[in-house]
Design a protein around this nucleic acid. Structure first.
Lengths: 154, 154
DNA sequence: CTAAAGATGTTAACATGTTAACCAGTTTAA
DNA sequence: TTAAACTGGTTAACATGTTAACATCTTTAG
């Protein structure tokens, strides 16, 4: 093997220690706690994010819903269509701007939220206990800090 | 609004503060630093993970490759097929066990790695500087710790 | 007022995530 | 030894991630 390629291999972090990888693994581990109860109700994590967001602010348009759920518009379009097909949400044009569509949680959607939310809260509680409240807060801070550091390239 | 649903909404963390969400946002922010240089060479982050892993341990079989890249087998199957089609990797049956396929980086694959790796290392360097080495190490520790906490449910 | 620019969403196309089903080769146990 | 169980890997089907193209409606510049 040439010295050049050996040097380059070493200049990269160990494979199992790359930052995106570690963040992904942590996210997977956390999600694993929530996904089973969502699957019982045939919901994906993304669909659940949309429902949760609507529960807090009903009638958001697609744009703000995409922002609050951290989803790209194409994904959100499909997800809302699916939820609409299942009767969990409905849409209505916004008067005054015919481009906008406001999305509303249906009664069935609200019922489903009420069914899942307690379990979800319980899982959070368990994670907080297992990991430690202080460390969890520290982790949130570091993550926010990291995003802020990278958001301002100048 | 009924008191019950209000309570449930409050019992969940603020929407923009859920743990999987924060981890995902941080990962997105970090990936944003690397994706452009990968896209210049028509590589996805996952394809790059496979190439990096092979650069370190050439000739891994699909199973260990999936483990080291943190990919599920179906995803890896497709990715290796794509890379094979582009002539970046090749496969060979393992003598002694006709189920296993060993994957090797081709000369073209090694060349591509050598082209991208320095930029990638440079990005890591920039991230470390912007965020701070100490905080980065602390973050790694917390993430590992979190995964370990959740891996042992008992 | 009207054409250009901008905003809001959707569709298309391709890659990955995820679960289940499946196939072929290997190991194990009766 | 041979059928059952296991292992390594692929394929299928559906949902999402991602970029680009597009259709509409709205605003704005001239």
């Amino acid at each position: 093997m040439s010295p050049a390629s050996a040097d380059m291999a070493e200049s990269l972090r160990d494979f199992d220690r790359s930052l995106p990888m570690s963040l992904m693994k942590a996210r997977e581990a956390v999600m694993k706690e929530f996904i089973p109860s969502l699957r019982e109700h045939n919901l994906t994590p993304q669909q659940w994010r949309v429902i949760r967001s609507l529960q807090q602010h009903d009638g958001q348009d697609m744009g703000s819903l995409a922002d609050s759920c951290f989803l790209l518009s194409p994904s959100l379009s499909r997800i809302v269509q699916t939820l609409e097909g299942r009767g969990l949400v409905s849409r209505r044009g916004v008067r005054g701007d015919q481009r906008r569509q406001a999305v509303f949680l249906s009664t069935a959607g609200r019922k489903l939220f009420a069914l899942i939310a307690p379990k979800s809260a319980e899982r959070y509680q368990r994670i907080t206990e297992k990991f430690g409240y202080g460390k969890l807060e520290l982790l949130y801070e570091l993550l926010d800090d990291l995003v802020a550091s990278l958001d301002h390239p100048e």
